[in-house]
Simulated assay, not measured.
Amino acid sequence: MRTFDEIYAIAVERKGGAGAVEAQMPTPKASDEIKAMGDDRILAGMTRAIFQAGFSWKVIDNKWPGFEEAFEGFVPVRWKFMSDDDLDSLLKDKRIVRNGPKIMTVRDNAIMLCDLDDEYGSAANCIADWPMDDFVGLLEMLKKRGSRLGGNTGPYCLRFLGKDGWVLGRDGIAALIREGVVDKAPTGKGAMRAVQGAFNMWAEESGRPFAHISRTLAMSIDA
């Protein structure tokens, strides 16, 4: 397995210079910034990632103001009690994408966020304070306790919210395979722990956030 500096050098060569690489780096938020977010913004971020999964991101982006109106600002304590009448109304609401199973995730994830509020003071506190050397544990928690937050939906949601972490697209997975971290797309717990170990090592070497390591891995693969 190469060092981060070696992988970064490959990305720089392939992208035409360090400036081109750095221009594509995400900017994670500080923990205090995430904690300052209301849990309504956490639920909104989850819902946006869920609706974008397998769908046109541009369509969801264009319709998002309508989502905010239809879901009344995504206050979790409101939507944990989603009624049948609420669902019927939303299924007829042209301001949103009328996908019943995805609409129901708003209720299920609102329940999770209210539970996290009871446990941590807010769901934002839980996400902000989750240790990076167990990022895989945060992903597993969202997958188990939430609705439709498995796969890359959870990582994308966290990226939208500003939480540092990885998003493993096709190129990122190809780089992990090249480096011998995994031998195929990581889905099982053992493979995900191997990914965690590699990211922990590269972060310690470089002082970089996981988001930068993730993006560098992807940029080190020929398009």
Rank of each mutant, 00 (worst) to 15 (best):
W79H: 14
D222I: 05
A203K: 12
R2S: 12
M1H: 11
Q52D: 04
K102Q: 02
C126M: 15
A185L: 08
F135C: 12
Y120A: 11
E140D: 15
S31E: 12
G165V: 09
S147F: 01
G100P: 01
A36I: 06
N125S: 13
Y120E: 11
G169A: 14
K29A: 14
I111T: 14
G190W: 01
V12Q: 03
K189C: 03
C114L: 04
K92H: 11
K80T: 06
I103H: 01
G54V: 03
D93L: 07
D93H: 04
T187P: 03
S214C: 09
R95P: 10
V75D: 02
P209A: 14
Q196I: 04
N125M: 00
W130I: 02
F160C: 06
G38K: 10
R107Y: 07
L138N: 13
E33N: 08
W130Y: 15
V97R: 09
W130M: 10
G16R: 13
A49T: 04
M25S: 01
M82V: 08
A30E: 15
A11H: 12
P28N: 03
D129F: 12
A53I: 10
W57I: 07
V97H: 05
D88K: 12
G162W: 06
P101N: 03
I221P: 13
F71L: 08
G54R: 07
G172H: 11
A110Q: 03
R170P: 00
D61S: 02
R48T: 00
F55I: 07
D108F: 01
K63L: 14
